[in-house]
Structure formats: C-alpha cells, structure tokens
Nucleic acid binder design. Sequence first.
DNA 1: AGCTTTCCCTGATTGC
DNA 2: TGCAATCAGGGAAAGC
Length: 282
Amino acid sequence: MPELPEVETVRRVLAPQLAGRRIAAVQAPWPGVLARPAADPKMLAATVAGHAVTGMSRRGKFLALELDDGALLRLHLRMTGQLLLCPPSWPETPYTRLVLTLDDGSELRFADMRRFGRVWYLAPGEADIYSGVANLGPEPFDPALTAAYLRSALGARRVAIKSCLLDQSVVAGIGNIYSDEILFAVRIRPARPANTLTAAEWRRLSAEIPAHLTHQIEWSAISPADYLAGAGQDYRNTPHLQVYGHAGAVCPRCGKASLQRTVIAGRGSVFCPRCQKPARPR
DNA sequence: AGCTTTCCCTGATTGC
DNA sequence: TGCAATCAGGGAAAGC
C-alpha cells in the first residue's frame, strides 16, 4: 500500500535509470490498466514508441514519466501496484499489466495484483482532467501547508481529523498508515472532529506532516542495485511503525495503555487511548 | 454541500 | 480437509 514515501522512493530509484532511455515498444497484457484518454494499447504504442524519457516526477501518490515531446505517462500504484525495471533476462513477473520495452532491451513493468492501479497518457500540453491529479491539495512539503491553511480548510468540518488527512484535496500523499502514525505523533485521536482541534494542535499537525514524511522517505531509502536486483518486486515499506498494525500491543509512548483499533472513514485505525485523548466537551 | 457507504479487485486469514 | 465468508484499502461514485 504505497503512500507518498514509498512512491517517492520508487521515483528516486527509477528516475536516473530511465532518463534518456527511449521507448521501443509497449504492451498491455491487461488493457484495463490504461485509463482515458488513450485507452487503446495499440494507439498508445504507436504514440509513444521512439520517444525518450526525459524525467520522472511525483505529485502526491501519482508518478509521471515525462517524454521528450512533452507528453506524460501518469500512473498511480493504488494498493498493490509495482513499477519494476527489469533486465532483459528477467523471468516473467506475475500480474504484469503494462510493459514498456526500452531501447537497451530492459523492460519497465507495471505489475498490479488487484488491478486498482491506472496509467493515463496525456498528449503534449493536454490538461489532465482525467486522473484526479488536478484536485490534489498542496504537497506536504509545500510552504503553503501551514497551521493557518489547515485550520481554514478544515476548522469548520465535523468529520474525523483522520478523514481529513486522507482527503487528497487537503494534503496530497497521506494514506491510511501514515495518517495513523502522524496523529499518534501529535497525540490527536483520529476520531476527533476537525472542528475540535485547538490552535496548538493545528500547529503540531502542520509541522509533523512534512517532518514525518521526510523521515519516512529517508527511512525507505533503497539502493538502485537492491531495487533492480529484485527488492522492487515485493517492495513494501514496512518500517518500524509505532501504531499501524499494532492493535492490542502496549503503547510505545506511555507503555501503559494498549493500542486500540477502530474504523474511521471505512479504514482500520489504531491509536493509543491514553496518549491520544478525545476532545474535551465544550 | 457535507458526509457515509459502496464498489472495484484478489490473496491471506478466519470460521464452521 | 475444504469451502465460504471476511478483511485489507486508494479513490471514484453513488447514496443519504
């Protein structure tokens, strides 16, 4: 379940490997991976063949291959997507949905067991009204992501603060795992209605979001050699998380309460009932 | 308009 | 042992 840190890690590994490579061929073992507007594998192949990759960018949890004519291949890994750069000798990868064969014979494979991931081709200059990237809020590292911004965007909302952090139009890139981790770090209970947060809590939250994700990106760092040797194959960031996946365990901060699991916004959520207190009644 | 629920998918896990 | 029900969740869409 890649979130921003994992997606950024993939980008950092692959960007230098792909830069300058020319696309020789395109195949889509599962054409459904291609979303509008270029939903036809043959048309896509004819369109991008011969073009070079000039760079790779990230926005929220989206990645994009930038081509030398200004076109973009935007992609989202969703739950189980993997982006693998494979030497020609590599055996077939299970669940391969899209393959870009490069001019050195290597293959960039988009594998995705559960078929949630998508790829969008965008012609040079074409506005991306399809993928949802246009609706993203600021990056976590954007200076615009201040306490004042969060409070003005969310301060009147009655939904759980966790739902707000998962809302990509508020902040781009946070998913279920890091929303729990961030809220644990700032000692705010995930179910707290956003309109009950104090000024100090908005400040803690706005500071923690970039700090936490930066830390996780650094923690996730993986060498290109390892990634290309197969670590990208089952690459999941399973760092030493504080709360996610640890329901029932003793809280790593207070050492007293046991971590509780609940469901918020349809997602499993873990928190410490002692460290993350509910809103004070007013 | 704001918020909740459903849906898409399939492997792992749980229950009978 | 075997099969069915349940769970996991990013994000769009439908429902309330």
